[in-house]
Design a protein around this nucleic acid. Sequence first.
DNA 1: CTCTTTTTTTCGAGCCTCAAAAAAATCCTG
DNA 2: CAGGATTTTTTTGAGGCTCGAAAAAAAGAG
Lengths: 417, 417
Amino acid sequence: MSVGIRHDDLRRRNRAMVISAVRRAGQPSRTEIAATTGLSHSTISAISSDLIAEGILAQSKASEAGSLKRGRPQVGLTLNPEAAAVMTVVLSLNFLSVAVIDYAGHVVAEEQRRLTTLTLSRDELVGECVSIVRRRLEDPDLDVRSVARIALGIQGITDSHARAMLWSPITPLTDIPFADILEREFGIPATMENDCNMMAVALRWRDPERYRDDFIAILLSHGIGMGLVLKGELFTGTHSSGGEFGHMIHRPGGALCRCGRRGCVEAYAGNYAIWRNAMQLGEDAEPTDVGDAEMRALAARARETDGPEREAYRKAGEALGYGLGSLFALIDPAPVAMVGVSAAAFDLIEPSLREAIAQTAGGQHSKSISFDTEPNELPLIREGCAMRALTFVDQEIFAPGAPVRTTATAMASHELA
Amino acid sequence: MSVGIRHDDLRRRNRAMVISAVRRAGQPSRTEIAATTGLSHSTISAISSDLIAEGILAQSKASEAGSLKRGRPQVGLTLNPEAAAVMTVVLSLNFLSVAVIDYAGHVVAEEQRRLTTLTLSRDELVGECVSIVRRRLEDPDLDVRSVARIALGIQGITDSHARAMLWSPITPLTDIPFADILEREFGIPATMENDCNMMAVALRWRDPERYRDDFIAILLSHGIGMGLVLKGELFTGTHSSGGEFGHMIHRPGGALCRCGRRGCVEAYAGNYAIWRNAMQLGEDAEPTDVGDAEMRALAARARETDGPEREAYRKAGEALGYGLGSLFALIDPAPVAMVGVSAAAFDLIEPSLREAIAQTAGGQHSKSISFDTEPNELPLIREGCAMRALTFVDQEIFAPGAPVRTTATAMASHELA
DNA sequence: CTCTTTTTTTCGAGCCTCAAAAAAATCCTG
DNA sequence: CAGGATTTTTTTGAGGCTCGAAAAAAAGAG
């Protein structure tokens, strides 16, 4: 049963409010914050002077540009970049990348590393992650002692508590509690996030106009993934990261999917599916890894001549269209962002996709559904992880006088409960 | 952007907390409430004495039964039945039923009426609803001047603001803003709810052990509908009532659905679909209305001999199974309640349903998914509407000193803003 | 240099919640 | 049957929080 609101929660929540207003608006004045939060000027004034004293916010005198107004000029409030830092760890096929991000959201350090994720043992894979994090934390060039949170992003299924990877296409291993491992190793709170969810978080951050309360991010890559934002909140399953759009059933008993079942959307629209259809290997052909370059070449051939390559993309579009149609029957249509290497071939996919959607319940407004494409998923995933981690820090710094792990500028008096 | 918490919100929310605790627990003591809400005894004491003074709660001396404990005996708090009343209006095929329910949730009056919904004009249909409500409101036998809210339930699609019926199988008419109409006519706040959503609300209320945070209610009747509760909240679409499970695509380009499209789950599992398959009329046969008695006879024949009737139920199970499988790919498996006349034939449906689910991503734990059946949807819908309306009243009575529309026992001093 | 305008801070009032103590209501024990 | 023992409920005082109004601050306009 949901719990009552205590008196001290009030301040905590309103501090949260102010911080997130600053994070979103960039450099809002106190007056602006009062307007967006609906709180009184006095409250905003009190809270922001607290936050400034604690080193979380900073004043940026110049309100820039059009300061042509009469009256006392507004004072912009900004996030103090030194208030804290977060680290993102993105693990994808044969690739591990880490970045350190300051509290204002700027990358201050990064490191990338190639490795063969498919063949590494459990200890090796975990070891690689731990050691790359350690290297960044121990970097003498940089004061990263203030890293307050780590967000890991991984392709695959994570649990709903954001603690563990349950399954991933990048490794045969399962159930690795990465978040717990890093947390124990470094004593820094960590979470394990699903790649497509992070894509959605990043899109919302990049373009809040377009991706606001309801939208869908679909990863078109080796596999098919989805990140879903409904009513302004990331939609996750009840036990897992959820939203396994790629494994909705397109054709019962149909083509062989990488997951071992038959007829999933992915078995028609994943890179391997497009590839085997283009090569006319049959729908039961074992899924194989196809490089990005090869996929781009395939798309080029499909654009050139009307052969099996084009047909393969047509089938992918059909599967995606019917899948989206079923999804739209459940959640109402919403803007869609197509991300990943096959999003660059969206011109080949779109016609049959729209045709299929038009055959479904969600297709009533088929024409009004808009698609956007973004061929490169990695930057999005990292941005999403960064925002996710920073938001956690925002939430934790609220606890008055009990900043989780901040720089010396913040008061470090009280201890954690 | 979400809004800050004002100081007076605090009291309002905590009052809400207390009221809902009483509604859920039936007759909790103050101490019990303090425990479940996490608020202090003093706060609960203050709030509940306010609520008693306002006539919203009442004390029931006897804590009944096992009062064998030492110490000062607990005083049970109950909802004052006279604090307010609500009305439910359930509109289904050829049937209109109304009930008046007191604040404690007991039916105090009802009226039912047969009519031919499919042929009534817009004005006639609206007129029937208005006049049946008026009759109940003007009933001299009963003091129903305190009706504080009306909840309408209807089969079909409603808008997400719960104002209008957008589409319904019980009438060819569309876009009727029932809630606005009743609200204007009687000056009583009203909402328009989707039938399956109300089924879900009622199930949760009936059996909170089983139907708690995540579950699915599926209506197996003429059409196929769904009510979905995720993370303790009713899941609705962003524009409409959403959850059009029946119109997820089972077989692209497949059987003709009542909605005019092809291959929907409903086109295999709706009553008309089972009927036409059993009668071997072909998958393109025009959907026809089939009576409940005929469906029961059909089920009996299917149980008797292994003929086309049994095959029709098998196909229905397959469609439902693949549909559920796709759904479970998105939201993780959850307990399912099958409601409606065909739920009584679930024994015929279950085998192929489970087999189909096992072929899907959600089917990993296929065996652990549990199904419950309830052949009669109408009582559930009415109960759901009642709870929904009462919950609204709970929310509105919170506003301190501004009860929306209560009996004379409640202080009626302040006016609405 | 003074007036106007706008932003920000200060201050007192009014609530709200909380912890601790007091009061109330019953059972238990000798 | 009186005096604990025990548990629930109410009372009380303290501390916080937000709010509105007023004051202070910081410019531009004339």
